[in-house]
Computed example of a mutant assay.
Amino acid sequence: MARPEASIDHTVPELGRLASHLRSMRHAAGLRYADLADRSGYSAAALKRAASGKSLPIIGVAFSYAVACVAVTMDAEAGRLVPQLHEEAKNAVTQAKLDARKSTVVPKPQYARDLADLSGAMRDAWRRMGEPSSRGMERAGGGHLPRTTANVITHGRTVPRDFRQYVAFLMACGVAEDDPADWLPWMRAWFKIRGRPAWREVRSVSVTLPGTAQLAYWHLLVQESDDPEAAWSEVSDISQSIDGAPHRAGTGTGTGGGTTEWDAGPPPLVWESQTRRHRLIGQTARDRTAVREGRPQATKTRNRISAPHTVA
């Protein structure tokens, strides 16, 4: 008498569902794994692994498994369900691997004092997202983050060449997807290190920003301006030119669907703590001084940007 088959691993539910479906097809066909191997061209061991739920089978194995069963049962509907279940399992396994790589370190851009610090904070955000691939970051960057640039940024060899690429990198790392206030420390860090943009640049950049980033960008330009009234007027003009029509009192719509309130006052964003403490793990004071003065770092540290700073 053959040993009973091991129970299905449901650690990844979608992978478990695929395995359960394959096993139910085999039971309905009344086939042994040796029979499946003869009919499919794959080994019995590979077919057994495909229905274990422990690992994702290649689509060829899963499809051949299903075809061999359908040839007996004539249940075409069950066979058509296999590619869908395999795709769902594939996406779930990819996400599970990503989650397993996620770091628990919270990025702290508010403490960044130079490009090396900012690079370290950006890489902390990348690790917290689970170290997504450069190809995936290119897709998430909306056309503003080439994969080669994403790769060198995540390896600490460069920083974004402009503000839009900076935002694209942070978007790819899942920063501030819903709350505009989450953008503020990142944008403050950029302004502190790179300087405030000219209004001509603000106008061109604003058109390309997603809703939450656009709202935070405008808010910060007004709130931290030496002349808030003049800045308010500039931002209002930019907002109206983007939307193509003047705002009615109290409301307005940004390009990304975010709501602005230029006539009613600044958007009600939550401001994070203005703590001035600075703590950078893994880089000595001598190394930070060397980076600022344009000299090579004395030691190999976590923040690997060294002068001269390169941009993509």
Rank of each mutant, 00 (worst) to 15 (best):
M1N: 05
A2P: 14
P4E: 11
A6S: 14
S7W: 04
V12Y: 01
E14M: 06
E14Y: 00
L18M: 07
L22C: 08
G30Y: 05
G30R: 07
L36Y: 03
S43Y: 00
A46K: 01
P57Y: 10
I59W: 08
V61W: 03
V61K: 04
A62R: 02
A62I: 10
A62W: 03
S64A: 15
A66P: 01
C69E: 04
V70I: 15
V70D: 09
V72C: 09
M74D: 14
D75P: 11
D75T: 15
A76N: 10
A78W: 12
G79P: 06
P83F: 08
P83H: 10
K90F: 13
V93D: 06
V93I: 15
Q95Y: 12
A96V: 12
K97H: 14
A100I: 07
R101S: 13
Y111V: 06
A112E: 01
S119R: 03
S119L: 07
D124S: 15
A125N: 03
A125L: 04
A125G: 04
A125D: 07
W126P: 02
G136A: 11
P146M: 05
R147W: 07
T148F: 03
T149S: 13
H155N: 10
H155Y: 02
R157A: 10
R157L: 13
V159S: 08
R161T: 11
D162P: 07
F163T: 03
Q165S: 14
A168Q: 10
A168I: 11
L170K: 07
A172P: 11
G174C: 14
V175D: 06
A176W: 05
A176S: 15
D178R: 15
D179F: 11
A181G: 09
W186Q: 00
M187R: 05
W190D: 01
W190P: 01
I193Q: 01
R196W: 09
W199T: 00
R203G: 00
S204C: 00
L209F: 05
P210L: 02
P210V: 04
Q214Y: 13
Y217L: 00
Y217S: 00
W218A: 09
H219V: 06
V222T: 11
E224G: 01
S225F: 09
D227L: 02
E229V: 13
S233W: 07
Q240E: 15
S241L: 06
G244R: 08
G252Y: 02
T253R: 13
T255Q: 09
G257D: 09
G257W: 11
G258E: 15
E261D: 10
W262F: 15
A264C: 03
L269A: 01
W271G: 00
E272T: 12
Q274T: 12
T275G: 10
L280D: 03
I281K: 13
G282Q: 07
Q283D: 07
R286D: 14
P296F: 00
I305P: 02
S306R: 13
S306E: 15
A307F: 06
A307S: 15
H309I: 14
A312F: 10
